[in-house]
């Protein structure tokens, strides 16, 4: 198992987990809809098309963003 930090929360995921698997795990445990989420891995935006081929490392910082009201 490795530790990754998702929006400041530490999560334990299997070694060799890809970003998609990690996000699905988080989404399930937090009732989060991934359809309109943007993701940054260590402060670099990872397009949805690359989630499955991006592998998580110990200590990775994953940040999830969504749309909010604004002018």
């Amino acid at each position: 198992m490795i530790n990754v930090v998702v929006n400041s929360q530490v999560h334990r995921v299997l070694e060799n987990s890809n970003l998609l698997m990690t996000l699905q795990l988080i989404a399930e445990s937090q009732s989060l809809d991934l359809s309109n989420i943007a993701v940054a891995l260590n402060q670099h935006v990872v397009p949805k098309s690359q989630w499955a081929e991006t592998f998580c490392q110990q200590g990775d910082q994953i940040d999830l963003f969504n749309a909010v009201a604004g002018g």
Partner: peptide
Amino acid sequence: VTLAVKRVDLKQRTDNLM
């Protein structure tokens, strides 16, 4: 129409605006 981007608060559920 403008919108903003914000880091998700995992402790709070938000409406889907889009």
